[in-house]
Amino acid sequence: KNALMQLNEIKPGLQYTLLSQTGPVHAPLFVMSVEVNGQVFEGSGPTKKKAKLHAAEKALR
């Protein structure tokens, strides 16, 4: 199970927000955030999926 699945089991129905998309078309950088218990966690990556995963990993720490 990855961090997204684990976080969804603990806190179902979380909303992930796209904060920014920067970089060239062939190498974009997405920044996504998720709010858990009033705290906002951000993650970035080359795809929205990876950015969401990194945000979930930070939220689980």
Rank of each mutant, 00 (worst) to 15 (best):
V25W: 08
L60R: 02
E9H: 13
A3S: 15
K52M: 13
N8S: 13
I10V: 09
A27N: 10
K50M: 14
V34F: 02
K52E: 05
V25I: 08
K11H: 15
G23I: 00
Y16N: 02
F30I: 07
A51I: 03
K49W: 14
G38C: 06
Q39M: 12
Q6V: 12
L4H: 06
K58P: 02
E9R: 15
E42F: 06
P28R: 13
E42Q: 08
E35W: 05
A59P: 00
A3C: 06
F41K: 00
E9T: 13
M5V: 09
P24G: 13
L18F: 09
E42I: 14
Q6Y: 10
L7V: 03
M32W: 04
G38R: 04
V36F: 09
Y16R: 00
P28C: 05
M5N: 14
T47R: 01
A51L: 00
Y16C: 03
G23H: 05
H54R: 13
R61C: 11
V34S: 01
S20Q: 12
Q39F: 06
G13Q: 06
A27C: 12
G45C: 01
S20T: 12
E57S: 09
V31D: 03
F30T: 05
V31M: 13
K49F: 15
P46H: 08
V34L: 07
G23F: 03
F41Y: 10
K1L: 12
K48Q: 12
R61A: 14
G43C: 01
L29R: 13
G38D: 10
P12F: 04
G38P: 01
K50Y: 07
L29K: 14
L19I: 15
N8T: 07
V40A: 12
E57N: 09
F30G: 02
K11S: 13
I10C: 07
G13T: 06
A59H: 02
R61H: 11
G43L: 00
T47Y: 00
N2R: 04
Q21D: 05
G45P: 00
Q21F: 07
Y16K: 02
M32G: 03
G23S: 06
F41Q: 01
T22D: 09
N8Y: 10
Q39S: 10
M32Q: 05
N8M: 09
F41G: 01
L29F: 10
T22N: 10
V31F: 09
Q15N: 13
E57Y: 04
P24A: 08
K58H: 09
N37D: 14
E35Y: 03
Q6I: 11
E57Q: 09
G38N: 07
L4V: 13
Q21I: 10
T47Q: 02
Q39P: 02
V40D: 06
K48V: 11
R61W: 11
K52N: 02
F41M: 03
T22A: 10
K52F: 01
G45N: 01
K50Q: 11
S33R: 14
G43I: 00
G13S: 06
E9W: 05
V34R: 00
P28Y: 02
G45T: 01
E42Y: 09
P24E: 14
L29N: 11
A27S: 12
N8A: 15
T17I: 11
L4C: 10
N2C: 09
H26C: 11
S20R: 13
L60T: 02
P12H: 05
I10T: 07
N37Q: 08
Q39L: 10
L19G: 05
I10G: 05
A55D: 01
A3Y: 15
E57W: 05
E57K: 11
A27H: 11
A27F: 04
T17Q: 09
T17L: 10
A3Q: 09
P24F: 04
T22C: 08
P12V: 04
F30C: 07
K1N: 13
P12T: 04
K49D: 14
L4F: 15
H26V: 05
A51N: 02
G13H: 08
N2E: 09
E9S: 12
A3F: 15
Q6M: 15
Q15R: 14
N2P: 04
R61M: 14
K58M: 13
K49R: 14
E9K: 15
Q39D: 12
I10L: 14
G38H: 06
Q39V: 11
V34Y: 01
P46R: 13
G13D: 15
L18R: 04
K48P: 06
G45D: 01
V40E: 10
G38K: 07
M32F: 13
G43V: 01
V40G: 05
S20D: 06
P28H: 13
G45L: 01
T22P: 06
L14C: 11
P24N: 09
L29G: 09
K11L: 12
K58C: 12
E35I: 15
Y16V: 02
I10E: 06
K52D: 01
G23A: 04
G13L: 04
R61N: 14
G13C: 07
E57I: 08
G38V: 01
F30E: 02
E42R: 07
H54G: 10
I10A: 08
L14T: 12
K49M: 14
A27M: 10
S33Q: 14
G38W: 01
T22Y: 08
P12D: 03
S33A: 14
K52R: 12
L14K: 03
P28F: 02
P12G: 07
L18W: 06
L4K: 07
Y16G: 01
S20P: 07
H26P: 06
K50I: 11
G43K: 00
H54C: 11
M5F: 15
E9M: 14
G43S: 02
S20A: 12
G13N: 08
P46T: 12
T22F: 07
V36G: 02
G45A: 05
E35K: 09
H26A: 07
T47I: 00
N2G: 09
A59F: 02
L60Q: 00
A51V: 01
G45E: 00
A51D: 02
A55L: 04
V40I: 13
E42S: 11
P28A: 06
E35Q: 06
T22Q: 09
I10F: 08
P24Q: 07
T47M: 01
T47G: 03
K50A: 14
M5R: 15
E57L: 07
Y16Q: 03
F41C: 05
Q39W: 09
L18Y: 05
V40H: 09
K50V: 12
L60P: 02
H54M: 13
E35C: 14
K1I: 15
